[in-house]
């Protein structure tokens, strides 16, 4: 029986820039930031209230499963905003939206009412998009 998600993967184009975005703008916490040899790095962050879920900021670069052509294709797809990576929730969407805008986060959809609550969409520094939602209270 599957019980939990412990790791999820977000493909990024630059790990220094991703660190700045996820930690300094979104307010996520660094779980592990460890060098893996001379030019590789294992970087995971966790949402502030969910320390058990590691989001792997996975650098798309040649090596391992990525050959040169796959790397080029993947980097282009990420940059184009092809991938919607996750749904984040917050207690109050409007204040979170205003705060992230002040911090320079790019929103591709302003907050709107949906049947489950309110939702806005933003992009990370690589091009991945995320839903930011404020869910209706349980009936």
């Amino acid at each position: 029986m599957i019980t939990k998600v412990t790791h999820m993967c977000v493909y990024v184009l630059d790990q220094d820039s991703a660190y700045d975005f996820y930690v300094n703008k979104l307010g996520f916490k660094v779980h592990t930031d460890a060098p893996m040899g001379p030019d590789a790095r294992w970087l995971t962050v966790t949402p502030p209230a969910q320390p058990e879920l590691e989001i792997t900021l996975f650098l798309v670069k040649e090596g391992g499963v990525f050959d040169a052509e796959t790397t080029r294709t993947m980097r282009n797809l990420v940059k184009k905003g092809t991938f919607g990576a996750a749904v984040f929730t917050c207690q109050d969407l409007m204040t979170t939206y205003e705060e992230l805008k002040v911090k320079g986060v790019e929103f591709i959809k302003t907050p709107t009412k949906e049947f489950y609550g309110y939702e806005a969409l933003f992009k990370d520094d690589s091009g991945n998009w995320f839903s930011l939602s404020q869910l209706n209270p349980e009936p």
């Binding site: 790791h7 993967c9 893996m36 040899g37 590789a40 792997t56 996975f58 090596g63 391992g64 499963v65």
Partner: peptide, 8 residues
């Protein structure tokens, strides 16, 4: 799985 995907 991640270590293998990275080629580590």
């Amino acid at each position: 799985c991640f270590a293998e995907a990275h080629g580590w």
